[in-house]
Amino acid sequence: MSLTQQDVARIAKLARIAVTEQEITAVGQQLNDIFGLIEKMQAVNTDHVEPMAHPQDASLRLRADAVAESNRRDDFMALAPQAEAGLFLVPKVIE
């Protein structure tokens, strides 16, 4: 398998990471090397093997429905790159 420059550009777009033309070439090469490594697992037969998502075969613990958090808006807003009137500000959202 080999990733094309278009593949790399598409992935970067999906991941919301800006890449320059030069980077696409360099990153593409590295990604292809990595996939060269990854492809080795295709040689193994894994029919009838249950995928393992988690180290423990346990069930999810649930919490009771109760409010346990108080308002910490001021603390949080102090960390925001841009905020006003208790809102996080971002470039215009277009629907």
Partner: peptide, 29 residues
């Protein structure tokens, strides 16, 4: 554990989990 009540002042019912702070984790209701 943040409240779901409607109509509060903006971002007063958004805790660190709701704001996706680094390191926070979900626990199902």
């Amino acid at each position: 554990g943040a409240s779901t009540a409607f109509g509060a002042e903006p971002n007063t019912q958004a805790c660190n989990v709701d704001l996706a702070y680094p390191g926070v984790l979900p626990v199902l209701n």
